[in-house]
Nucleic acid binder design. Structure first.
Length: 117
DNA sequence: TGATTGACCAACT
DNA sequence: CAGTTGGCCAATC
């Protein structure tokens, strides 16, 4: 494991989110380690625009499935548009059937960790 | 170098 | 049931 920065670790997970799926800040933080907090994930997203790669931050929402950071996409409705572009319905800044689209890295990447070993 | 902040979460009052 | 507080840790002022 290269000494990736905290940001890059978060980006790696976000980039692994499949099409039409979403995850939460807390889940990513929990996957990175119990010592990490969800705030760090949000911080990484804020600086995601500085990252050379495109970070699909629109696939990351808070625990309630609400588009908390929609304003950081350069517009109040950009995030929703991106989600709807992936067949994800958004109503009142909240993802419809959020539980259905939820993609937990702690579970999905768990198999990948064992496989990678 | 100390203080502040931050796209969060959970518990407590 | 709504508002407040604490925690978590790194980056910025």
């Amino acid at each position: 494991m290269p000494d990736l920065s905290f940001f890059e670790k978060v980006y790696e997970i976000v980039l692994k989110i499949p099409y039409g799926k979403v995850t939460t800040y807390g889940s990513i933080a929990k996957y990175l380690g119990a010592g990490k907090s969800a705030r760090m994930v949000g911080w990484a997203m804020n600086k995601s625009h500085t990252h050379p790669k495109q970070i699909p931050a629109h696939r990351v929402v808070n625990r309630n499935g609400v588009l908390t950071g929609k304003h950081h996409f350069g517009g109040p409705n950009v995030m929703q548009q991106l989600l709807e572009n992936e067949r994800i319905k958004v109503n009142n800044d909240q993802i419809v059937n959020f539980k259905k689209h939820f993609w937990d890295p702690a579970i999905e990447l768990k198999n990948d960790q064992q496989n990678h070993k």
